[in-house]
């Protein structure tokens, strides 16, 4: 399957969105709203729930179910208040020692004038800075689209997982085609060149594992995912915090391909 075909699948309407994973993975959820600074952003769902017997904080970028819902959620393109809500709930999780589980599905951070006025760049930058030092485990799963900085703002994690057909990209293939070739029709080529598939993420050390998509047996699929989370969380929680943070640091520290004095 080509990268473009995967991109199309990742964007299919009717594919399970953030809410479906929250409902399937966590019991007794309490949803929490607002950034306590400016407002509430429906593009990011957040709250507390149980992963088996373990209370966790969940954060999910939600594209919406039907047209009305999608409009209310800005089609899953978060604004600064969404990222600030996410940060607030992450800091809350840190205070109470709860692991953070993030679900990413976005074309990217919202690019409107209001988002710029309220500091979209700063909001993402602060999440990157804070997540780098958050003293509880962070697990991030890309369930559909992982669009650029808007996805990374929930992606500075100890473990990153990709759904089988999920994609993760520095820029949308449309944006890339438009900037480089002044031709948004070259999306297929751009998707290919950008290397956005789950296998690419494994290859570049961006993700640790790929979850097979068996949406027709969604509860069973989530059961498998849950087992993986529990396994990785028990490993992370057994480590001294300093070691976990050092490993998180090194996880990103080693990403980069270059030569020094002509040597790779």
């Amino acid at each position: 399957m080509t990268a473009y075909e995967k991109l199309r699948i990742a964007r299919t309407t009717g594919r399970p969105t953030g809410r479906a994973y929250i409902d399937s993975l966590f019991t007794e959820q309490v949803f929490l709203h607002g950034d306590r600074r400016y407002g509430e952003d429906g593009a990011i769902l957040g709250g507390i729930g149980y992963l088996e017997r373990l209370p966790v904080t969940f954060l999910a970028i939600e594209k919406g179910q039907d047209l009305q819902d999608r409009l209310a959620r800005n089609f899953g393109c978060p604004k600064p208040e969404g990222y600030r809500k996410a940060l607030r709930l992450m800091k809350q999780a840190e205070k109470f020692g709860r692991p953070v589980l993030c679900f990413v599905d976005t074309l990217g951070a919202f690019c409107g004038a209001d988002a710029e006025e309220r500091g979209q760049g700063l909001a993402i930058a602060e999440n990157l800075l804070e997540m780098a030092g958050l003293t509880v485990p962070i697990l991030t799963t890309v369930i559909g689209e992982g669009g650029s900085g808007g996805a990374l703002a929930l992606g500075v994690a100890d473990r990153v997982y990709m759904l089988e057909n999920a994609v993760y990209s520095v820029i949308s293939p449309e944006g890339c085609a438009s900037i480089l070739w002044k031709d948004s029709a070259k999306v297929e080529q751009a998707a290919d060149c950008l290397h956005i598939t789950a296998e690419d993420m494994l290859r570049f050390g961006v993700a640790e594992a790929v979850f097979p998509e068996t949406f027709d047996r969604f509860p069973q699929m989530c059961e498998q995912i849950k087992n993986r989370y529990l396994q990785d969380l028990s490993e992370l929680l057994s480590k001294p915090i300093g070691q976990m943070l050092e490993e998180r640091y090194q996880r990103f520290r080693k990403i980069g391909i270059f030569t020094e004095n002509g040597e790779a």
Partner: peptide, 19 residues
């Protein structure tokens, strides 16, 4: 980010932020 380096360029944002 330098799109010619794909996802690796996006990850530099996280790498620098951690430092």
């Amino acid at each position: 980010a330098r799109m010619q380096e794909g996802i690796v360029s996006l990850m530099q944002m996280a790498k620098v932020s951690a430092a």
